[in-house]
Structure formats: structure tokens, C-alpha cells
């Protein structure tokens, strides 16, 4: 479960860290991927994992388009963070209503042939959907990490974040790199959204709940820090999981966000050194 938060949170953290764009619509894009997975499953029995092959490229291009025509103009603004929040908040509202129109406000669940199956390994038992979510999310995190550390474009993303001017002096086209980063961030939200849909039921405004977890992941993990976000996702997953086991449900969020406040007071820069 934690790895799913991580996958959902990494893209959010990247666009915040690299481009100073706090993408309020990040989770809404993830939710669209979840609904797409639902529709593809209902209509053609397509496995949700395979639906990612459709939704991720779709979201990537949609996000590049949005970046090019809506976000580029505001990157000239003095307060990019604030303007980007307002802009993407608007996008989130549009997306939410779009989802309401298409899919209606009913809660949905992804029910596959293996939803209720479990694997038992020694004293542990794993539910199939959780396992699938975990594996997919870990793979997603791995792919992003591979992209950032080992590809030229990924390195350019990191360089542009650390020293935008110097990166440009050595031939990095800042606008293009930002667009690609934004596209990838949103695309990873799509994969994360499908993983979330494996675990929880969802409806068109579920994204605001997911969004809170995104902030949690970024704040605990450190802005723009991929491994930080991954670890933060795991920590949050473990905390919510454990507290669910011992405490009534109402207490879980109280505990999680209590933790968030303590972290904000003690280590406002996040638990982990930023390293991208």
C-alpha cells in the first residue's frame, strides 16, 4: 500500500521540486486512469494492469499539451508556486466534473477474477490485488529512478533543477525538459491511480483525499526527492496499516496527520536530504 502512495507521490514531488508547479490536479489525473481501467475492464474484460498501457501514454500527451498551453505562460510569473496551484486547482475541478459526467458519482471498485485470491508464504498471506499493486508501484518507482539516474534526458531534468541557468548554458532546452517532466509526472500518477483503484473504491471526488496523501508523501520525503518519496510512501503505508490493526478506523487519519504536523515542526525540510 505504501508503495502505491509512493508512486502516486513521486510525480507530484518532481513537478513541485523541478518546476515549482504544485499540481493540485495530479491525483485527479490518477483518478481518470482508474476510471479508464474500470471502463476497459467492464467493456472488454481488459486487465487493469494492461489498461496502464493505454492510460499512461494518453495522460503523458494530455499533460504535455496542458503544460505547453496552460502552464508555460504562468512560468513567467513571479509566484509560480501560487499561480500554478490556482491554475491546477481549476484543472482539477474541470477533471472532476468531467468524471462526474462520464462515470456518474457512484463509487466503483475494480473487481477482477483474482480479487479475492491470496498467496500464503509461511506465516504471511498476501491478497492478490495488493500484491499486484505493490509490484506495479515498485516497478513504477524503479522506472522513474532509472530514467532520472541513467538516461540523458533524466540527467538533464536533475541538472535543470539544480542549476537552471547552467543547464541551459550546456544546451538543455528548459521548456522542453519541463514539459517532459510534467508529462512523466502526470503519467506516473496514472499508474499510481490504477494501483490505488486496486486497493480502494473510488468516485469522482476521491482525488481530493488522495491529494492530501500526496502532500504527506512530499512533506515527509522532501520536495523533489524520488527515493525520499518512495520511503515516505512506505512509512505512511506502514503507519496506516499498523494503526488500522490496533485502532478504530477514525483514529488512522488523526495519527497520520498528527505525524505530519510533528514532522513539519521538527524537520520542515522533510525527513530525507533532497538528492535529485
Amino acid at each position: 500500500m505504501g508503495s502505491v502512495y509512493a508512486l502516486l507521490g513521486i510525480g507530484f514531488s518532481l513537478s513541485w521540486g523541478v518546476m515549482k508547479v504544485i499540481n493540485i490536479s495530479h491525483a485527479a489525473f490518477g483518478l481518470i486512469a482508474a476510471f479508464l481501467a474500470y471502463t476497459l475492464l467492464q467493456a472488454w474484460g481488459l486487465d487493469p494492469i494492461l489498461s496502464i498501457a493505454v492510460s499512461v501514454p494518453l495522460l503523458f500527451f494530455a499533460a504535455c499539451f496542458i503544460y505547453r498551453f496552460l502552464i508555460t505562460p504562468i512560468t513567467q510569473a513571479k509566484e509560480v508556486i501560487v499561480s500554478s496551484m490556482i491554475l491546477t486547482f481549476g484543472i482539477a475541478i474541470i477533471l472532476e466534473n468531467l468524471m462526474l459526467l462520464i462515470w456518474s458519482p457512484d463509487p466503483r471498485v475494480l473487481t477482477t477474477s483474482y480479487t479475492s485470491k491470496v498467496i500464503i508464504v509461511g506465516p504471511f498471506y498476501f491478497q492478490y490485488p495488493r500484491l499486484a499493486g505493490f509490484l506495479m508501484a515498485s516497478m513504477g518507482v524503479g522506472i522513474i529512478q532509472f530514467f532520472l539516474k541513467l538516461t540523458y534526458t533524466g540527467k538533464a531534468v536533475r541538472a535543470a533543477w539544480q542549476q537552471p541557468d547552467a543547464a541551459q548554458l550546456y544546451g538543455v532546452n528548459l521548456k522542453r525538459i519541463s514539459m517532459i517532466t510534467f508529462g512523466l509526472a502526470v503519467a506516473s500518477a496514472g499508474a499510481g491511480g490504477v494501483c490505488m483503484a486496486y486497493l480502494y473504491s473510488f468516485e469522482p471526488h476521491t482525488h481530493s483525499l488522495w491529494l492530501i496523501y500526496l502532500f504527506l508523501v512530499v512533506i515527509v520525503g522532501g520536495v523533489g526527492n524520488v527515493l525520499g518519496a518512495a520511503s515516505a510512501g512506505l512509512i505512511i503505508g506502514v503507519i496506516t496499516g499498523l494503526s488500522l490493526a490496533f485502532l478504530p478506523y477514525q483514529w488512522v487519519n488523526l495519527l497520520t496527520f498528527g505525524l505530519l504536523m510533528i514532522i513539519l515542526i521538527l524537520r520542515p525540510q522533510g525527513l530525507f536530504q533532497s538528492e535529485v
Binding site: 540527467k155 538533464a156 536533475r158 541538472a159 539544480q162 542549476q163 547552467a166 548554458l169 544546451g171 533532497s274
Partner: peptide
């Protein structure tokens, strides 16, 4: 550039690679 403006959280090797971007 003045003040070097290195990609300080990347390795020396990666900085050189970025030079040849």
C-alpha cells in the same frame, strides 16, 4: 559561469556528461 554553477548533487562524471549534453 561565475561561481561555477556546478550540478552539485550529481557526480563529477555526470557533470562532465552534462557538458556533452
Amino acid at each position: 559561469p561565475e561561481g561555477r554553477k556546478l550540478f552539485s548533487k550529481m557526480t563529477v562524471g555526470e557533470n562532465l556528461e552534462m557538458g556533452a549534453y
